[in-house]
Amino acid sequence: MIHRLGIAWLAAPACIFALLVFALPLALLLVESLRGPQGWTLAGYATFLGSGYSWQVTGRTLRLAVLTTAICLVIGYPAAFALARTRGWLQSLLVAALLLPLSLSVIVKAFGWTVLLRSNGIVNRLLMASGLTDAPLRLLFTETGLLIGITNIFLPFMVLPIFTVIRQIDPRLTDAAATLGGGPFYSFSRVTVPLTLPGVVAGGTLVFSMSIAAYVIPNLLMGDRYQTLSTTIATSFLYLQDPQRGSVAGVLLLLLSLLVVVGSVVLARRARAAP
């Protein structure tokens, strides 16, 4: 026990740092959301939750996060397998393709997508040149364009945790399942999926919590009219000079992502405990 505490001290600098620059401002945010001109009040929440527009914004934020996570999972899961099971130069190439984009700033990437998705951008020119469409598609400032961009930017955060988990799985387990009479689908659902679930949960929570809070990407690819909880926070503080509305949105955003993250971890644990 003493030994454990001894080791735990190593985390002290990180804890103090997180406390000062993360927990403290969050507490201030919470206080701000509960304070009115006449002291403590829930008026901020009442106003925010009473407005249909706020619900629309919240719904849109959730929808964006859920869709992004789902698309990243569908694309990233097989990619993680390819990454984990290839060898040699091919694997190096795939790892590089996955990791190199991470060294680019989100702003650069999001801006890059605005260039690509424009009506005279490369994507539309390719589509028209290949004869798939006659006129340029409207991609920029649409949810489709946003999903393409945001998926591209967050995909590595889905692939990496799944890749790490797959690498620890003995490839002979699927051989064993096959020799026992399990067809490809049976083996996948009874062996591969349960064993990769921790990676899926880790990747899913990462991508979900990042995309629910995404600010730059929706801002650049959708503009001001498309308000999510995080853009609402910025608008409230910067343009509307309404710190209480911003704080309330901030607290709600935090609660939403906490709920989903904790919920999925608990669900995954329960799924593991009782297969």
Binding site: D170, D175, A176
Partner: peptide
């Protein structure tokens, strides 16, 4: 055909 693998390949979950 049953197979007993070298490192058993038991399902850890």
């Amino acid at each position: 055909i049953g197979v007993v693998f070298q490192n058993y390949a038991l399902f850890p979950h």
